[in-house]
Each structure stands twice: as C-alpha cells, then as structure tokens.
C-alpha cells in the first residue's frame, strides 16, 4: 500500500467539506475519484499535498500517510521529497517561463544535476512535443500540451504517488483520451495514481478502482464495471447532493 487516508475530515473555517473519508491507493493502481462540482475533490488533494493551509483550510481529524511520511503534519517540501506529486486543477503552468524552465521547476526539490538531466530526458521521451517546444514560452502551448507539461513537471521529482486534478478539463475528447492513456502507461510502470475526474467515461476506462464522493463522504466504491451503467452514478450524485443540503 502506498497512499492511505483514514477518516479524514477537512474544514475551511467553520465549513466542513470533507467528512470522515478513507481511501487507499496501491502501487501501479489508478483510483478514480468522481463527484459533483464543489463536492470536495480538489480539497482532498490539497490536504494530501500540504497546500490546504494556503487556502485557509485545515485537516481537522484523521490521518494520511504516504510510505513513512505523515502527510497531514509534513510541510510541502517534505511531502514532495517523500515522493508525492500533485498536478493542480487548471494545470497552473507558469506562462512566462519557457517549457523547459517549467519542467525544471518540478525538480527544485531534487538534488543532483545528472539525475535531473536524466529525468528530463525520460519526460521528453514520454511527451515528445514538449522537447520540440522546450525553448518556447509555456503560455503559448495548447491546452493539451500544457496538461502534458503540468504532468511532466510533477514527474520531475520522481514521485511514487501522483495526484491528478481533472486532467481532461477543457480538452478535446481525443486529447483527453491520449493523456489518459499516458497516465495508464505511467501507472503500469508502478506509479500509484489518484485521478480526480469530471469526465466519467474517461475515468472509468482507465481506472482500476472508483470512489464516488458525495456530500463530503465516500458514497460508493468499486470496480469500473460496477458503474458502467450511467444510472448508478446519476443516482449516487443525487444522493450526495441531498445529503449536502440536510
């Protein structure tokens, strides 16, 4: 087991967003996390990457571990060094730096020039288009290329767990499927992936397991085939919202 979240509760001020959530992601496995807008998927990822504090949020109860790292106590640097990387919602590449500089930013917590150069070469072979545009401004990349850059940046730190927040956001279906395929490939090489998605079709097609978040809780877990009938998800989402209101 690589990533383990137990009974996690998260608040922004007095507003409780995540309520007693437990999750596990193993080596070489993709867990897809589904749920309505505003249900707390991004918040959960923030809690794991120690960036909740800069949004005014707080993990009020529970634990989260990655290998030996206590994710709720560690600072952001320690989390990255422990081998957890988070690709944030909306990609957040730095537009006025070059593509290569954006990649190298991902290695700021890593030591050893040779190791970093080798890693960069690996990522360029994974996403050849980034190598072609290495010197260009990152802001000029297309949406899909920017998503590849964001994933590449996260991979620069040699993670063993990858948190992906809506990689398909705003992408054409073809590009989104391409990126999903790459994620599958990375996972097959041993990476544990927690994939947050709105696009359930893509998520179900690549995931090994699925968890559905509703009203701050995990309302369902299972294999992708359990959710293949669209009505199951529709029902779950509604149930989640109803609980949210109460």
């Amino acid at each position: 087991m690589v990533l383990a979240v137990e009974n996690l509760t998260v608040r922004y001020g007095s507003a409780q967003v995540i309520n007693n959530v437990s999750l596990r992601v193993e080596r070489g496995e993709i867990l897809a996390l589904l749920g309505n807008n505003g249900v707390g998927k991004t918040t959960l990822l923030r809690a794991l990457s120690a960036t909740l504090g800069m949004h005014g949020g707080k993990a009020a109860a529970g634990t989260a571990h990655h290998a030996t790292c206590d994710l709720l106590r560690a600072n952001a640097v320690a989390v990255v060094r422990s081998g957890l990387a988070h690709v944030p919602e909306g990609r957040r590449i730095i537009a006025n730096l070059s593509v290569e500089e954006n990649l190298m930013a991902g290695a700021l917590a890593v030591r050893g020039a040779a190791k970093i150069a080798a890693r960069r070469a690996t990522i360029y072979s994974l996403f050849p288009v980034l190598a072609e545009r290495a010197r260009g401004r990152a802001g000029l990349l297309s949406g899909g290329e920017q998503q590849m850059l964001a994933i590449g940046r996260a991979l620069m730190s040699h993670p063993s767990v990858l948190l992906l927040d809506e990689p398909s956001l705003g992408l054409a279906p073809l590009v989104a499927r391409q990126i999903a395929a790459t994620v599958r490939q990375i996972s097959d090489e041993g990476m544990a992936v927690l994939l947050v998605e709105q696009n359930t079709r893509i998520a179900l097609s690549v995931a090994d397991r699925v968890a559905v978040l509703g009203g701050g809780r995990v309302v369902a877990q299972g294999r992708p085939k359990d959710f293949a009938d669209g009505r199951v998800l529709a029902e779950l989402s509604l149930g989640g919202r109803a609980r949210e209101r109460s």
């Binding site: 952001a76 640097v77 989390v79 944030p88 006025n96 500089e101 930013a105 917590a109 996260a154």
Partner: peptide, 17 residues
C-alpha cells in the same frame, strides 16, 4: 521566479519558501 509567479505551484514543486 516560480514563487513570484504562483506561490501554490512553488509549494507543490517543493520550493523551500
């Protein structure tokens, strides 16, 4: 330059802020 542009990204890549 990364911290200046986006403090959250700086934290995510492990810049010792």
């Amino acid at each position: 330059r990364v911290s200046a542009a986006d403090r959250e990204v700086a934290a995510l890549v492990g810049v010792p802020m």
